[in-house]
């Protein structure tokens, strides 16, 4: 009954996120071997800090991608920038204003999500173009609003986002808990089941009594809200908002979703994989840095790994 090796291997095959963790461990070992054991702990600590932000937006992006082919949120970076700028300006470095900042991050997300979905639903614009053109507008708003912004975050926020307990970032702990909650949301709630059903077959989902449009609306809003919070936290972490602080998350949010074992064809997603993939991506860059690779090599490796993963995992029937 137990201890059947073939069975274990098959179980592993069912869990594609395993690979991102395996890759992560291998890369960490390679790095630590190279440095002869120097700084192995601090690398993990840094990886947890930085991966946290990718995980936040990655989870939102994952829900969007899960609703089926063609669904992707390209407005995440712009939303991060806008939310960060407004939050910093309104809070103006005051701890007392922190709750207001949280509300603003939430409000920004709700507004962006509603706008995105309006473009998709009312104007019938394909999601990629809709979120892209929305991101132009959002980014401009952020630039106009946040020009010359050099405001420090409230000390409480800065402390919260940078605090480490025994080397483990506090924020990472929170986001691990959040990922578990998101996993429950995906697998155990009506909303999550509906998202998975829509992603497999939108028409069948409609015929099975699911309110497809409401669920899609909620999904784009969820993604935007998470981007909004990411903006707030990122501004706190890096000592103030900057307009291009979201730009790297356009590619990163999609990459971690794909590497983490979520199907781009929709209907199958994986939250543990997002953590694994985010850590993997950060450790990969760290390893290349340690080996003394230049910025160019780091970029090339990142890109090739994304293409390799999708080539191996791909071959789904859907396009795009």
């Amino acid at each position: 009954m137990t201890g059947n090796l073939a069975g274990i291997l098959r179980k592993l095959g069912d869990k594609p996120w395993i690979w991102s963790y395996l890759g992560m461990i291998l890369i960490w070992l390679a790095t630590v071997t190279y440095t002869m054991g120097q700084g192995g702990g601090s690398i993990i600590s840094a990886a947890l800090s930085f991966a946290t932000f990718t995980v936040i937006v990655g989870i939102g992006q994952m829900f969007v991608i899960t609703t089926g082919p063609g669904n992707v949120d390209l407005s995440i970076p712009a939303t991060i920038a806008l939310s960060g700028a407004i939050c910093m300006k309104v809070m103006d470095g005051s701890n007392a204003m922190l709750p207001v900042g949280v509300l603003i991050a939430l409000g920004t997300g709700i507004a962006v999500g509603a706008f995105n979905y309006m473009l998709i639903r009312v104007l019938r614009i394909p999601p990629i173009i809709a979120t892209l053109s929305a991101s132009f507008l959002i980014l401009s708003t952020a630039i106009a609003y946040g020009r010359g912004l050099k405001i420090k975050p409230p000390p409480l926020l800065a402390d919260f986002t940078t605090m480490k307990i025994a080397g483990i970032p506090l924020l990472a702990v929170f986001i691990i808990v959040f990922a578990i909650l998101a996993s429950i949301l995906l697998n155990r709630t009506l909303y999550g089941r509906s998202v998975l059903a829509i992603g497999q077959n939108m028409r069948a989902a409609w015929l099975a009594g699911i309110n497809v449009e409401r669920i899609r609306y909620a999904t784009y809003t969820l993604s935007a809200i998470l981007a909004g919070f990411c903006g707030l936290l990122l501004a706190g972490f890096s000592g103030g908002a900057s307009l291009d602080m979201g730009s790297e998350y356009l590619l990163a949010s999609i990459a971690v979703v794909v590497i983490g074992g979520t199907s781009v064809a929709g209907g199958k997603s994986n939250i543990p994989g997002i953590w694994g993939a985010s850590l993997f991506m950060f450790l990969l860059v760290t390893m290349l840095n340690t080996f003394g690779a230049s910025a160019g090599i780091r970029l090339i490796m990142t890109g090739l790994i994304i293409v390799a993963v999708i080539t191996v995992a791909g071959g789904d029937k859907q396009q795009r």
Binding site: G296, L299, T302, G303, I306, V307, G314, G315
Partner: peptide
């Protein structure tokens, strides 16, 4: 039969890397 959006996204890193 890959989703072009993901493949080209990955390639954008590669092009940028070579350019750098």
């Amino acid at each position: 039969n890959l989703p072009s959006i993901v493949v080209t996204l990955g390639m954008s890193f590669v092009w940028l890397g070579i350019a750098v």
